[in-house]
């Protein structure tokens, strides 16, 4: 198996994008390596035209639908690698959507970009992440150099990134701000038993108008997060704009692995599998440990979510 490679590629024009993407994809195909391209529909079109016949041999996904949330994205990459497990090298061109994202989502995606260096370290993935400098802000482009060990302009060669940051340091800075205090009107309960956690969460979710299915899924997420955290704990729930939020706080506990729950379950059961499930089911899962304990905050869509 080859070593994992994770590179950023900053481009300012369609031509610059193609100068990197076409050789990267063509070299992979020539080597018989699986190649996945997940980018905007605009860039998929550009690349498809440039590749001609070769495009039919490329795995592709419109990027907004390839892992809607960061934990789903990281899982999709891991699974692509596992599905192609017979290969020493797998190539992925991965350009997230940055435009129009909330501050919180931008932070979460930067955090994931950095985390991928750890999460995919035991794979033979060569990943290039294009950043469109016409569209992304300066802050996002600068952080791309902190979250990728090297930078490639031609999809073949690379130079090290001078500002590359150790992933755990970078993620630590992403997680530096404490979670906002629960608003007035939140309901909380001290709970000793794990089965009371899921009952409390399901009942509160239903009372706030979530469908039976959404309430059940949130209850599973809370149960799994509580299993990871341990009991006794205090559960709190409230509504925010567009969201139902659930806090689980355990005094005297700390969670040290900031990437716990980003790796999908395998054949052997691991403690973090439950947290992975919570991250798949929820829109946001935030974990904060401080001197007095640890909080896991789960957020799912509120009852007025429209699905068409």
């Amino acid at each position: 198996m080859e070593q994992m490679i994770h590179q950023a590629s900053l481009y300012g024009s369609d031509q610059e994008f193609l100068e990197m993407a076409v050789p990267f994809v063509r070299d992979g195909l020539a080597n018989g390596e699986p190649v996945l391209v997940t980018t905007t529909s605009g860039n998929l079109e550009l690349l498809g035209e440039a590749l001609g016949e070769d495009a039919t041999r490329v795995d592709h996904a419109e990027t907004a639908y390839y892992g809607r949330r960061t934990a789903q994205r990281a899982t999709a990459f891991t699974r692509y690698w596992r599905r192609n497990s017979g290969h020493r090298r797998v190539r992925i061109l991965a350009e997230p959507v940055w435009q129009g994202k909330s501050t919180r989502d931008v932070l979460a995606w930067k955090r994931m970009e950095s985390g991928l260096n750890v999460l995919l370290d035991d794979t033979g993935i060569w990943m290039i992440c294009p950043y469109d400098t016409r569209a992304v802000g300066a802050g996002i482009a600068e952080d791309a150099l902190r979250t990728h060990p090297s930078v490639s302009a031609d999809g073949r060669t690379a130079r090290p990134s001078a500002t590359y940051a150790d992933p755990l340091d970078f993620i630590g800075r992403c997680d530096a701000a404490p979670l906002a205090a629960p608003p007035a009107g939140s309901v909380s309960a001290p709970l000793d038993e794990i089965n009371d956690v899921r009952r409390f969460v399901a009942a509160e979710a239903r009372r706030r108008g979530l469908t039976e299915e959404s309430a059940s899924l949130l209850a599973v997420a809370a149960h799994e997060a509580a299993r990871y955290l341990g009991t006794p704990l205090t559960a709190g729930m409230w509504e925010d704009f567009g969201a139902v939020v659930c806090d689980l706080r355990r005094p005297g506990k700390a969670i040290s692995d900031p990437l716990a729950g980003f790796r999908p379950p395998g054949p052997i059961e691991r403690a973090e599998d439950g947290l992975w499930l919570a991250r798949q089911v929820c829109d946001h899962v935030d974990v904060r440990s401080d001197a007095t304990g640890c909080t896991i905050r789960l957020q799912t869509a509120g009852p007025r979510l429209q699905t068409g």
């Binding site: 059940s216 799994e224 299993r227 379950p265 439950g274």
Partner: peptide
Amino acid sequence: SFIDLSGLR
């Protein structure tokens, strides 16, 4: 009415 990851496993 409820099954967790360990039950599914």
